[in-house]
């Protein structure tokens, strides 16, 4: 099974109702897979809005996930820090993490490489997935824990999973 299909299955297993997202090239097949399922998707103008919309959905009983690139999570730090975390509005985030192994673009490095540490500083739980084999289970378990503990959970997908651009080679 492709890593993309594993993620889609994990989201279905987790009974996610809504995926808020701003497109990322690496996640194209994941988005297509979700759009072929019964899960609703919402494209936002800025990732901060993806976090806010996913957080807002919780008050209706829904389970929402956010999909974005690490630069997008960096765009959304204040929404996490001043809405989702303090108001206890849970969501699952699936974040393609740039800036580490194979990265050619230095503009992706400070935020992408640093985000797991930034999440630690903010008390936001996360895991960095480097091998695709257990992705379906990881996505399911991250979502289950987010919604049962009423706290956000971020799953970072490293380039070892998603592949990487070799523009500089």
């Amino acid at each position: 099974m492709s890593w993309e299909a594993e993620i889609v299955d994990g989201l279905l297993d987790a009974e996610i109702d809504l995926v808020t997202q701003l497109p990322d090239g690496a996640m194209g097949a994941v988005l297509e897979g979700i759009q072929e399922s019964d899960v609703d998707t919402l494209r936002v103008e800025r990732e901060e809005s993806a976090i806010a919309a996913a957080s807002g959905a919780w008050v209706t009983g829904e389970r929402a996930a956010v999909m974005c690139q690490s630069s997008g999570l960096a765009n959304a730090i204040n929404a996490i820090g001043s809405l989702s975390a303090p108001a206890r509005l849970p969501f699952l985030a699936l974040v393609t993490r740039r800036g580490d192994l194979g990265e050619f673009n230095v503009a992706q490095v400070p935020a992408g490489y640093g985000l797991p540490g930034m999440m630690d500083e903010m008390g936001i739980r996360h895991t960095v997935v480097e091998e695709p084999g257990t992705l379906r289970k990881t996505v399911r378990m991250a979502a289950d824990s987010a919604f049962s503990t009423r706290t956000p959970y971020v799953v970072f997908l490293d380039a070892t999973v998603t592949g990487y651009g070799q523009e500089a080679q």
């Binding site: 919309a53 807002g56 959905a57 008050v59 009983g61």
Partner: peptide
């Protein structure tokens, strides 16, 4: 406003 969009979805 984006928070409201999320609420309105559900």
């Amino acid at each position: 406003t984006a928070t409201g969009v999320g609420v309105a979805h559900g």
